[in-house]
Protein backbone atom coordinates (compact mmCIF):
# COMPACT_ATOMS: atom_id res chain seq x y z
CA UNK A 1 0.00 0.00 0.00
CA UNK A 2 1.30 3.40 -0.94
CA UNK A 3 2.09 5.72 1.94
CA UNK A 4 3.52 9.19 2.15
CA UNK A 5 7.29 9.42 2.42
CA UNK A 6 8.60 12.86 3.25
CA UNK A 7 12.07 11.93 2.09
CA UNK A 8 10.83 11.75 -1.50
CA UNK A 9 11.68 15.34 -2.32
CA UNK A 10 12.25 14.25 -5.89
CA UNK A 11 8.47 13.99 -6.28
CA UNK A 12 7.97 17.54 -5.10
CA UNK A 13 10.62 18.74 -7.52
CA UNK A 14 8.98 16.84 -10.35
CA UNK A 15 5.62 18.41 -9.59
CA UNK A 16 7.06 21.88 -9.34
CA UNK A 17 8.69 21.48 -12.75
CA UNK A 18 5.55 20.07 -14.34
CA UNK A 19 2.31 20.53 -12.39
CA UNK A 20 0.12 19.47 -15.34
CA UNK A 21 0.49 16.56 -17.70
CA UNK A 22 2.21 13.19 -17.46
CA UNK A 23 3.62 12.25 -14.07
CA UNK A 24 5.61 9.26 -12.92
CA UNK A 25 3.55 6.66 -11.07
CA UNK A 26 4.90 7.57 -7.62
CA UNK A 27 4.03 11.23 -8.12
CA UNK A 28 0.59 10.30 -9.37
CA UNK A 29 0.06 8.17 -6.22
CA UNK A 30 1.11 11.12 -4.10
CA UNK A 31 -1.23 13.49 -5.93
CA UNK A 32 -4.12 11.06 -5.54
CA UNK A 33 -3.35 10.84 -1.83
CA UNK A 34 -3.20 14.62 -1.46
CA UNK A 35 -6.41 15.15 -3.41
CA UNK A 36 -8.40 12.28 -1.95
CA UNK A 37 -11.97 13.24 -1.18
CA UNK A 38 -12.75 13.69 2.49
CA UNK A 39 -16.21 15.03 3.31
CA UNK A 40 -14.96 16.37 6.63
CA UNK A 41 -12.00 18.27 5.27
CA UNK A 42 -11.89 21.72 3.69
CA UNK A 43 -10.44 21.92 0.20
CA UNK A 44 -9.01 24.59 -2.02
CA UNK A 45 -10.45 26.36 -5.04
CA UNK A 46 -9.11 29.14 -7.24
CA UNK A 47 -11.24 32.21 -7.77
CA UNK A 48 -10.41 34.09 -10.97
CA UNK A 49 -9.78 37.83 -10.63
CA UNK A 50 -9.21 38.27 -14.34
CA UNK A 51 -10.12 35.23 -16.42
CA UNK A 52 -6.97 33.42 -17.55
CA UNK A 53 -4.74 36.02 -15.90
CA UNK A 54 -4.92 35.93 -12.11
CA UNK A 55 -6.51 33.83 -9.38
CA UNK A 56 -7.12 34.10 -5.66
CA UNK A 57 -6.71 30.96 -3.56
CA UNK A 58 -9.86 30.24 -1.56
CA UNK A 59 -11.02 27.61 0.91
CA UNK A 60 -14.26 25.64 0.66
CA UNK A 61 -15.47 24.46 4.03
CA UNK A 62 -16.86 20.91 4.13
CA UNK A 63 -20.51 20.31 3.36
CA UNK A 64 -20.99 23.07 0.85
CA UNK A 65 -22.81 25.20 3.38
CA UNK A 66 -21.05 28.43 2.53
CA UNK A 67 -19.33 30.14 -0.40
CA UNK A 68 -15.55 29.85 -0.70
CA UNK A 69 -13.52 31.92 1.72
CA UNK A 70 -10.84 33.86 -0.20
CA UNK A 71 -7.31 34.00 1.19
CA UNK A 72 -4.97 36.89 0.52
CA UNK A 73 -2.90 34.80 -1.88
CA UNK A 74 -3.08 35.89 -5.52
CA UNK A 75 -1.37 34.07 -8.38
CA UNK A 76 -0.75 35.19 -11.93
CA UNK A 77 0.32 31.74 -13.07
CA UNK A 78 -1.93 28.69 -12.70
CA UNK A 79 1.08 26.42 -12.27
CA UNK A 80 2.33 28.50 -9.36
CA UNK A 81 -1.06 28.21 -7.71
CA UNK A 82 -0.92 24.42 -8.06
CA UNK A 83 2.57 24.39 -6.60
CA UNK A 84 1.44 26.45 -3.63
CA UNK A 85 -1.44 24.06 -2.90
CA UNK A 86 0.97 21.15 -3.25
CA UNK A 87 3.24 22.71 -0.62
CA UNK A 88 0.35 23.25 1.77
CA UNK A 89 -0.68 19.63 1.46
CA UNK A 90 2.87 18.37 1.77
CA UNK A 91 3.23 20.29 5.03
CA UNK A 92 -0.02 18.79 6.27
CA UNK A 93 1.13 15.25 5.49
CA UNK A 94 4.74 15.67 6.62
CA UNK A 95 4.11 17.81 9.63
CA UNK A 96 6.74 20.18 8.34
CA UNK A 97 7.19 22.44 5.35
CA UNK A 98 9.14 21.47 2.28
CA UNK A 99 12.80 22.43 2.65
CA UNK A 100 12.69 24.42 -0.60
CA UNK A 101 10.29 26.88 -2.18
Amino acid sequence: MYSFDKSRLDLAREFKANPFGEHRPDLQYLLNLMRRPDPKRAHYVLMPRQWGESWTLAVMEPGGVSPPRPTNLVFTDAGEAEWHVFKLRWAELAGEELPFD
Binding site: P37, D38, H43, Y44, L46, P48, W55, M60, P67, A81
Partner: peptide, 21 residues
Protein backbone atom coordinates in the same frame (compact mmCIF):
# COMPACT_ATOMS: atom_id res chain seq x y z
CA UNK B 1 -17.33 22.28 -6.18
CA UNK B 2 -18.14 20.22 -3.14
CA UNK B 3 -15.03 18.16 -2.64
CA UNK B 4 -11.54 17.55 -3.86
CA UNK B 5 -12.91 14.54 -5.77
CA UNK B 6 -13.25 16.88 -8.74
CA UNK B 7 -9.58 17.74 -8.40
CA UNK B 8 -8.62 14.06 -8.42
CA UNK B 9 -10.07 13.37 -11.83
CA UNK B 10 -9.41 16.81 -13.25
CA UNK B 11 -5.79 16.91 -12.16
CA UNK B 12 -5.92 20.57 -11.15
CA UNK B 13 -7.47 22.78 -8.50
CA UNK B 14 -11.09 23.61 -9.27
CA UNK B 15 -11.76 27.15 -10.48
CA UNK B 16 -14.83 28.87 -9.09
CA UNK B 17 -15.92 32.46 -9.62
CA UNK B 18 -18.46 34.65 -7.83
CA UNK B 19 -21.36 33.55 -10.05
CA UNK B 20 -20.53 29.92 -9.23
CA UNK B 21 -20.65 31.01 -5.59
Amino acid sequence: FLSSATEVYQGRVTVMDEIDS
